[in-house]
Design a binder for these strands. Sequence first.
DNA 1: TGTCAATAATTGAATGAGCAGTAGTTGGCA
DNA 2: TGCCAACTACTGCTCATTCAATTATTGACA
Lengths: 164, 164
Amino acid sequence: MVYSAGMEPNDDPTRPATRWNDAWRGVLFASAKVLRTAERELLAREGFPLTWLDVLAQLYDAPGNGLRMQELEERSLFTRSGLTRLVDRIEAAGLVRRESVAGDRRGVRVALTSEGRRRHDEAFVEHFRLIEREFGRRLTPNQQEAVADALTGFWHDEATAPPE
Amino acid sequence: MVYSAGMEPNDDPTRPATRWNDAWRGVLFASAKVLRTAERELLAREGFPLTWLDVLAQLYDAPGNGLRMQELEERSLFTRSGLTRLVDRIEAAGLVRRESVAGDRRGVRVALTSEGRRRHDEAFVEHFRLIEREFGRRLTPNQQEAVADALTGFWHDEATAPPE
DNA sequence: TGTCAATAATTGAATGAGCAGTAGTTGGCA
DNA sequence: TGCCAACTACTGCTCATTCAATTATTGACA
């Protein structure tokens, strides 16, 4: 949610027409629209929102299907306090479990339960199809490659936007 | 916010490696990271969030610097009720004004005040520079063109994701 | 003209997210 | 050994957003 204002090519000094302008608008709209659809469908099909799938998928990808809160925070776009309560809800639904960390009593390890694993697999497959349908198929192979190539920098470098 | 899970190229059936995969991830991360930075800076500099700038810019671009709530809803990614309260806040800050619509007493027209216009101009210029710095400059001219070309469909057709 | 479904916008209740502050734990160093 | 700053995670408060219900108005049609 999101700046989506019009930037028509004209002479307005507050609306300069640049090359990257349309690229940015495309990125903004593509992510907003696809995510909105994905959110709606996931909620309808699985009964939980995208934020849950994000957490489940992070855990799934982690060694031993578990991560500490801190690690989860780094990998998601959440703040710590947001994550605490998000994990609360997912745990209450039985899809993850909090475990203590050997050797550090401050820490908490969040791990997928077998039910969480099952729901993840199920949800992810459908989610994947949806992204393919709503995003992938709307691009030619060349376009897919070009976009991937142009934007890899945004998820590769950690140097982007460190708070201050 | 948002699904950002890892999809490493491997043999996992729930993590098929496809061409559009990296493109989608790029779109997702680019918008999330740039928006996060933009939000922070705008708030620090102007004292209002991106949602306000979005509304101000829509009004600025509209004929007579005003729009009805309904039109604003179509142009933004908000629900009607969300907009009502968003406009409440912006109005309380004196940047927009609610006016009655001639010939339809149900309707409300939201218009920029002169202060709103001033704040818009000021904020937008800086916002524009920020997007250029955080997004535009990270792409070569060819990449800018390729991304713009690949993604225009997402803001041109209205056919995308109509609620059912 | 009177009725009533459709439309414009707002409001109430509930949910989700962030910031700032807190409690418990750890590790280094005097 | 004892102290203290740093770290991990959680909690209180507040704000922003949505869904569903509500109010006011309109326009079409009998």
